[in-house]
Write a protein that binds this DNA or RNA. Structure first.
Lengths: 188, 188
DNA sequence: GATATTGCATAACGTTTGTTTTATAAACGG
DNA sequence: CCGTTTATAAAACAAACGTTATGCAATATC
């Protein structure tokens, strides 16, 4: 029988994820990945059809890590739930620049426009906090999301360099400002 | 003496710029560029030290095109000057996705944080419009800039699909909301 | 028209990419 | 302990990359 498998799919994906974190997605070549595993590139192709399949798994693993950020900041209770989700998105961008670029700055041309995964879960919270209708709350969330993504992507590319405390203040500005604007419009 | 030069540096840069616009920066290889010029890759290297030098010129040309967007929207008078500069940035992202990515979504790690080229020119306008102090206006502009960049980068990556009219409305929301927030804080 | 000059095409260099082939070494059944 | 099986390492493969050496050919000058 064979010598025991040196690696599992999970180990290879983990190594590829680390390589991505440290040097970016473009650094994950078959040779570099093999080298990091202390092996040739051959074992990769016994467990995966192609490097593209590895990249897909890296994407999934990066998303899983992002979900951890969300869960963690939601559970911490440092901020109210809606703000916490935005702060987690930004913290992920700050601390995992390459993974953020991979997940949220890649070109989505061709992919269907997803309505923002947690939209459904978070809409009631916004409606409660602001008193807006479902439709208005949806637009409010979209505008807040744009703002949050702006900060996050600028941090990920070193376009900006803000501490999380500054981020928190700025997010409050945007939230309070937009909320007043939306409520005023809804009121009249 | 030699046969007349088939190409100038300008022609090559123009071809490289078009290639970038259509297929992205990574598509600009020496071979592809030569092919587009109806030639081999050799002439490129008689006029440029390396492909990297070509890329630098493409960057400069892209920036020049962006400046045209700014000048055009500022001169059109459809929006007040401050809004026009934001709208131009976003319109550039919509109409020249690849060039926008090249100019404004590349990693700036290592590069010094530029204070936003037109900051100096635009700050007095903001101070006049809002009555804020210089310091407050600077932060106001930064937050608006984050918002504008958020919209632009999401349009450039098809993360979002907004008409310019929607963009205009959303920008007004952000401006009015933030302005109220800042003025309120400055007032008390 | 001959000649000298020089930009360009051709072809190839050395790398690096993803992937595949080949031979080796290890594990297990007998 | 041997033979089969099989995952692995090493090397080779084809393609694509930036770049360069060589030689042709076109033009300006005489």
């Amino acid at each position: 029988m064979p010598p025991r498998c040196k690696f599992t799919r999970e180990e290879i994906v983990r190594a590829a994820l680390e390589l991505t974190r440290e040097e970016g997605a473009s650094a994950v070549t078959a040779r570099a990945l093999g080298e990091r595993l202390g092996a040739s590139s051959r074992p990769i192709f016994s467990l995966f059809q192609s490097m593209q399949e590895v990249q897909q798994q890296v994407l999934a693993a990066a998303d899983e890590l992002y979900q951890q950020y969300i869960r963690q900041d939601m559970a911490a209770g440092q901020y109210p739930p809606y703000k916490a989700s935005g702060m987690a998105y930004i913290r992920f961008a700050r601390e995992e620049r390459e993974l953020f670029k991979l997940l949220f700055m890649r070109d989505r041309q061709g992919e269907p426009l997803r309505p923002g995964r947690e939209m459904e879960a978070i809409l009631p919270v916004i409606m409660k906090n602001t008193g807006l209708s479902r439709e208005e709350a949806e637009r409010f969330h979209l505008e807040m999301w744009v703002f949050v993504h702006g900060i996050a992507s600028m941090l990920a590319t070193s376009y900006l360099d803000w501490e999380m405390e500054t981020v928190s203040d700025v997010l409050t500005d945007a939230y309070m400002g937009l909320k007043a604007r939306f409520c005023e419009r809804a009121g009249q």
